[in-house]
Amino acid sequence: MLINHPLLGLRDASEFVYLGDASLIDRPDAAADNAAEAFHDYLHLRDNPAGVHRELWYHEQGDRSWLIVTRNTLTHEITDVELARDAALRRPRTAGDAGQ
């Protein structure tokens, strides 16, 4: 499987480490009233879709970037790749970002 790295072009999947669901970049606000419940869900609950899935990959044997790869889990077709940094910077900032 090849991943089209936004900065480096096509690179073999063996250079990457797979982490999982891209929602992991949306860390809950530790100061919120429902923080315990939010962190429980953040740590333990995952969707397991048969189809399109946004997931985090780390380019360990390359430029050490975190990528968000949109991949179809049935066909392995990759339809989008972006830097996780760019996706994180696009999000509206929350109180929980201050300590990160």
Binding site: Q61, G62, D63
Partner: peptide
């Protein structure tokens, strides 16, 4: 280029 060759960085 930074990559892996066999198992080495």
């Amino acid at each position: 280029v930074r990559t892996s060759m066999e198992h080495l960085s």
